[in-house]
Every structure is written in C-alpha cells, then in structure tokens.
Design a protein around this nucleic acid. Structure first.
Length: 672
RNA sequence: GCCACCAUGGCUUAGCGGUAUAGCACCUCAUUGGUAAUGAGGAGGUCGCGAGUUCAAUUCUCGCUGGUGGCUCCA
C-alpha cells in the first residue's frame, strides 16, 4: 500500500500501482472535468502508475494548467485529422499558445481557410471515437524508425534528445506523435474545438528555413466555454482600433499616400493634441526644454550614429543630391554601385530620420557644456520614418512614419538613477491618468554571453542597477530579461496588450553610453576636467500613433471627456429651439468646450442614434422646457439623464471634469 | 519580404460570362417630433489598377497596388 496526500490534506491508502486517473475519480467523481494530475509538483497523465507515497492534485480543464494541456492535446488531434485527410502532410511542431493552439505542417502547400471546415469536422469525428491517448516510452532507435519519414521530427530527435536517451510518444488510434506530454486521457475531452485561421511560419522561426503551413485553433473544456470565447473574440473585434478609427473618423490611411503613413483627421487630431498637451505640462514641470528639429539629416550624421548602415534594411532609401544623381546616371551607375558608394561614405545625401537622437545630440554639442548644465533634458514630438516590412504594417500600431514623444537627457553618471526614476514616474503618471493598468514592465539587461554590447562592464552594472531600482519603485511586478537590452545600454519597457492579445511596447526608458562616445560628447566637471555625459532616451507613449491605437481599443472609442474629440453634442427637438440651441452652442465654444449642434429636422430619437456613433461624453437635449427655463437636459454616454440643469452649472461642472481628467463622464448621476 | 485570403458608390453589402443589388449616410419635399431609426422621392458606382482569354469580363487567367490573419525583425 502507498499513502496519497489529497488536495484537502487527507491521506488515503491505495494499492501500489494505482493510477493518477483512478484517484482523480475517487476525489472528483466519475464525471469530473479534469485532464491530468499534479503529482508532487509534476504534471502527469491519468495513466501514470503510482508506486510510492505522493501528493496528488487533479488538474481541472478550467484551470490555466488544465487548459494548456487541453490545447496541447487539441494540437495533436489537429495533426491527426490533417494527416488523415492529407496523407502527404508532415506534422512538425504543435504547441499550446496563449489563446489556443497551432500546428505547423510541411507538405501542406495551398491549404486555405476554406479547407478548415473539413479538418474541423474530422477532428470532431476523431474526438467522438473516444480514442485512448496512450503514452509510450521509446528508445532512440525506435523513435528513429517511427519517424524516419518525417525529417522535422528526426531533427528534433537528433537535436533535443541526449545521445542514447529515449523519449515518449503519444498514441491515439492510428496516430502517434513525439511528445513529452502530459495529455488528456481520451480524445473525447476535445469535443469543443474550433479552427480559426491558417498562416505560414518558418521551421524553427527562421526565415531561411522551409516554409510551413500553420493552422490555428481554439479549444475549451465545454460547449458553453467555447461559445463564450467565440463571443469574446467577436466583442474584441468591435473594439479594433482600425474599425473604430473609421467609424469615429479618427484617422485615415490612403493608398495614394502610402502604406503605414497616417493621416490624422480632425477628430483624431484632437486626441493626439490633448495627449501632447498633457505631456507638455509634465515636461515643463520636470525641467525639460522642448526643441524642434527637421525630418531629415545628412547621411554622414547617421553613419556616425550607427543608424546607417546598420539598420539600412529598415529605412527609407536615402535622398541623394540632385547634381550627384545626374552625374551618377550619366556615368551609368547601377543601384548596387550606388548603395556601395553610400555605405562607403563616398556619396553625400540625406536621410529621413529614423531617430531623433542625432539631432538632439547636435543641440547638446552646439555649446560648450559644464556640469552645471546637466542634466540637460531635450524633448521633441519628433516624427521618424522606418521602412517596416509590408506584411507588418497594421493600423496605427505598426506604421512607417510615426511621432515619438521623445526626449534625450544628457546626464552625469551620478545622475542616471534619479533621472531614470523621473522618466519612469512620467510613464506612471500617464498610464494612471488613462486608467491603463493592464501592462507589464520589462527590464532589458545585457546577455552576458554576447559581445554585441558597447561600454564597460562596470558602467553596465551601475545602469542595470539603476533600472532595477526604478522598476522597483513602481510597486508592480516587473521581469528581468537578459538579452533584451539595447546594444548601447539597458532599458525599461512598458508593454501592453491590444484587444486581440498582441503585445505592444509603448513607453520606454533607455540608458545609453554609446552615442555620447560616438559623438565625443563632453562637459567640464567641477574638477576642471572634461567628462563624458551619459544619455537617457525616453518616450512615455512610445509613438503617438501606436499609443493612440492602443488607447482607442482601451476605451473602446469612449474617450474620457478631456480627450473626447467632441465633448458635447447639442440636439434640438424641433426648429422652434434652434435659436436657443445655437446660443448654448456659442456659449460652450466660448469657454473652449468641443461642441457640435444638430438643429436639423430629424426626430430626437433619430438624432440621438446618429450622434451616439461619435461617442460624445454628453448630449444636450433642447426642447421647449429648456428654452423657457434657460436650462439643458443632459444625456450621458451610458444613457443616464438629468433634466432641468442650468446651462452655467453644466458648463462649470463640465470644465471641472475636463480639468481633472476624469476617467468617466460624471455629471449625470444614475437614475434610480 | 513569405504563405493564405480579400477588394463592388462615403460605410456595410448582394450578385453574376451579357456594364450591378439592398440598407445606412447624402440631397429634396412633407412632418415640428421629448431621450437608440417619421414618411415619400432623388442623386451617386468605367465593380482597386493593368494586361490576357472571349463576340462579350465586375465575373475566368496572369501581373501590380492596397488590406486582413500569421511568420520574421524592430536601434
């Protein structure tokens, strides 16, 4: 007999050789929703035979661990269905991911979304057969035999297995796959699957490797859960900033202008302007100086900074001077030769700036600096251009031209810690003001095994410590990631998720020893000697475009009053109130409130419906009663109403709400 | 850049080898209406661009442009 400690702390005696699944049934009953068990902290299959005392906790499919196992098993089910329908297809890898699972196949060229239905049907069919999912220990020789016809599996066997060590496969019906497990006990647990999309991927994520067909899917423990997940995805799509951007007329991207180049339309420009003003207030408070610099600079500048040619692939082509262009053309210069001449520095030209730092550096070095000037904080809403790959461009979050709320701080080494802290605080203030709490913080440190970093190791230690301290001061969880540092110094990134679950880096603070070196920046210390400053790059929003994109989704288009493109829409009930309506309109405009008036001849119900589309914080309904009493009837965005409010009271409260940057419209108390 | 898919008036969309639907928006008229669509009428599209097949292409084929989902990369 062996003693099993159960989740409730009790200890039960079982015959040696009892399985994890049998104990689970004892604990949870026959109709349990568990998929595996945790035995002494290790996830195991139900078929696992227990031979010694242990602690056992069944893993429910409704837990994070459980759904992960479910997803992984669903990936196997997918592979089984695909090879049954497409015998030539070769399964490669198929892991569980954040929101579901995928499986990559070789020899499945031309597979399209319309092919998903039959595969999904096949998956249901197999699931219904209730195949036992069986774990089988195999020697390396056996594995080599079984997977001989699949070079991808063979590569894994050869690379991942230690010589001579075997591994396990999981078998369900005819199908088997190389896998460590654990898995669900039977395919019947996988009834609630839905295949979602097809895309391509490269073997082992390397673009030089063979291209594979990737199929994505969802799986849930119950029909209800699947339905909820599908509904949540639909809901998320409605918040997509690309859709809302169009509906709310916030921005436009025009084919004739170019992909990834944002045209801010008036309503969207309001949001951006408000955010920039918000930042500007803090810049003044924190002792920054705002500067303006041009959109282009000489090629040589970027040769010196290292942006050219290192990042040539992600830049717009340089602008070559006209006379030089004509001369080269006369000489029959090829594009390849031109590129070489540029790289070698034999040709001068200009470049759209990929970063603002070189220009700010030139402002620093335009004067002799002393330690008394430091820290020197130069800020600019600087627009930069980067040649993102065509397939990467998307909405506002990945663009080719964007404006950074950029700043460069030139500091002494002693000042790094304080200044990084100041930058972090700014990011924190902004995120708080906007109610963005769902973000993670990553401190990017150097990879100790890599030689790509510049600067002395002792300085790095100091800078990394400063970043850690600053992150600590946030009082929230942050993670350290080795190898995520910029080549010139460590950094702190603020990463948020969009509605589809994709992560975007927004705010960033970076410590830089490299550029001051490259540009030979100096200041005179109080010791009379020349010293080299350190630079801190920081952008609390990151890019105005990306930040606004995420913000649109964060608020689902319902912006707080201080950011709302239009704050108040005035709707008259009939033409009898047009004069008073316009008086209200003028009054609101005169105190700087963004207002619109609809004095057309639609019914009031229709007007509300029409204007709701633009999500103003408030609508004011103007009828005979309001005209008579010089009041307004307020309708908040959520439908709450408050009639008979004096116009001046409304205005003063609205101005307070705007001034305090309230997260939600608060002028109308919910009716009881 | 790669794979798959998509492109029809401002928006959402039907359709098909014989130059095209409908709704919303827009304009006109009637209506003067109290908190999520008043009624009637009208105008608006060389069906993304370029070639090819065909008597005939929005529809089929190829190329291009742009978009979507991923992969890759992001100083």
């Amino acid at each position: 007999m062996i003693s099993i400690t159960l989740p409730d702390g009790s200890i039960e005696e079982y015959a040696r050789g009892v399985t994890a699944g049998e104990i689970t049934i004892d604990i949870e009953g026959r109709k349990h929703d568990c998929v595996a068990a945790d035995v002494d902290g290790i996830e195991v299959d139900f078929s696992t035979i227990l031979t010694s005392d242990c602690t056992l906790i069944p893993i429910s499919a409704f837990t994070d661990e459980g759904i992960h196992i479910l997803r992984h098993s669903a990936a196997h089910l997918l592979a089984q269905a695909v090879v049954e329908l497409y015998p030539d297809a070769k399964p490669t890898i198929g892991p569980a991911v954040d929101r579901g699972f995928y499986y990559d196949f070789a020899n499945l060229d031309g597979f399209s979304e319309s092919d998903l239905k039959p595969v999904q049907k096949k998956m249901h069919e197999i699931a219904r057969k209730n195949h036992q999912v069986e774990r089988v220990e195999c020697t390396e020789d056996e594995l080599s035999q079984m997977f001989a016809s699949n070079p991808y599996k063979m590569e894994i066997i050869n690379d991942k297995l230690e010589d001579g060590a075997g591994s396990t496969i999981y078998r369900q019906g005819e199908f088997f796959d190389l896998c460590l497990g654990p898995h669900v006990p039977t395919t019947a647990k996988l009834m609630h699957v839905r295949l979602t999309s097809v895309s391509s991927a490269f073997w082992r994520g390397d673009q030089s490797n063979e291209q594979l067909t990737r199929i994505y899917g969802l799986v849930e423990p119950s029909k209800h859960a699947l339905k909820e997940t599908m509904a949540a995805i639909e809901e998320a799509k409605k918040r997509d900033h690309r859709k809302l951007g169009k509906d709310l007329q916030l921005f436009h991207v025009d084919e004739d202008v170019g992909p990834g180049l944002i045209l801010w339309t008036p309503r969207g420009a309001v949001i951006r302007t408000c955010l920039q003003n918000f930042i500007s207030e803090h810049l003044t408070r924190q002792g920054y100086h705002q500067v303006f610099t041009p959109h282009i600079g000489k090629l040589d500048l970027y040769r010196k900074s290292g942006h050219f040619p290192y990042y040539q692939d992600s830049q717009y082509p340089p602008l070559v001077e006209k006379d030089m262009m004509i001369k080269l053309a006369d000489e029959g210069c090829t594009c390849g030769e031109l590129a070489n001449l540029m790289e070698a520095g034999d040709i001068e030209g200009y470049m759209l700036k990929p970063m603002n730092c070189p220009h700010h550096i030139k402002i620093y070095s335009s004067q002799a600096r002393s330690y008394r000037d430091l820290p020197l904080r130069l800020a600019e809403f600087g627009t930069v251009y980067r040649w993102e790959q065509s397939g990467e461009i998307s909405g506002l979050t990945r663009v080719r031209g964007f404006t950074q709320d950029d700043a460069h701080l030139f500091v002494t080494e002693d000042q790094i810690a304080d200044e990084v802290l100041g930058c972090i605080e700014l990011v924190e203030v902004i995120f708080k003001a906007l109610g963005m709490s769902d973000f993670r913080v990553r401190v990017g440190l150097r990879d100790p095994d890599s030689s790509k970093y510049v600067g002395e190791s002792a300085k790095w230690d100091l800078a990394e410590e400063a970043c850690r301290k600053a992150a600590d001061s946030l009082g929230i969880n942050w993670s350290e990631e080795a190898g995520e540092a910029a080549f010139y110094g460590p950094k702190i990134d603020f990463i948020v998720k969009d509605v589809i679950g994709r992560e975007w880096q927004l705010g960033t603070v970076q410590v830089d020893y490299n550029l001051p070196e490259r540009f030979d920046l100096q200041y005179k210390g109080n010791d009379g000697e020349m010293h080299r400053p350190v630079m801190i790059h920081r952008a609390p929003f990151g890019s105005m475009e990306r930040f606004c994109g995420v913000l649109i989704e964060h608020f689902a288009g319902k912006f707080p009053t201080w950011l709302a493109p239009t704050q108040v829409h005035i709707l008259t009930i009939s033409e009898k109130q047009v004069d008073y309506g316009n008086k209200v309109y003028s009054r609101l405009k005169s105190v700087g409130i963004r207002a619109e008036i609809d004095d057309g001849d639609d019914t009031i119900g229709k007007k509300i419906r029409t204007h709701r589309k633009f999500q103003p914080a408030y609508m004011l309904i103007i009828g005979d009663d309001e005209v008579e009493s010089e009041t307004v009837s307020i309708r908040a965005r959520n439908g709450d109403q408050s009639a008979g409010v004096s116009l001046e009271k409304f205005i003063s409260e609205l101005l307070r709400e705007i001034d305090e940057k309230c997260a939600l419209p608060s002028l109308v108390q919910p009716t009881e």
